[in-house]
């Protein structure tokens, strides 16, 4: 990775962190758990990394590929389960209102 790329990525990291800080303000307590659950599903974004690691044809680096497949399984669970659970919570929320 070149220094330019690294700097560009660091910019992305820092600015995205500031956005993250600013996004959460004055959240009503009832939404704390759904918000946590919703952002947990987003942290399953590592599924993108898992896809890249699981992607190559078998043969070149089998261990890497197997690790990638297991990562893909776990990340998919995180993503699908995370969004489904969050949606269920929020559905409940609406009915109560």
């Amino acid at each position: 990775m070149s220094v330019e790329t690294l700097i560009a990525l660091l910019y992305v990291l820092v600015l995205a962190s500031f956005v993250g800080f600013e996004l959460i303000a004055k959240v009503p307590p009832t939404l704390h758990t759904p918000l946590m659950s919703g952002s947990n599903a987003i942290s399953g974004i590592t599924i993108v990394g898992a896809l890249i690691c699981a992607g190559p044809l078998p043969g070149s680096f089998p261990t890497s590929k197997i690790l990638g497949i297991v990562a893909l399984f776990l990340a998919t669970l995180n993503v699908v389960g995370g969004y489904a659970v969050t949606d269920r919570m929020l559905q409940m929320f609406k009915k109560k209102k």
Partner: peptide, 12 residues
């Protein structure tokens, strides 16, 4: 996305 969750998670 990782940074968003990391930062908003700390605030939450």
């Amino acid at each position: 996305s990782g940074a968003l969750v990391g930062a908003s998670g700390i605030i939450l």
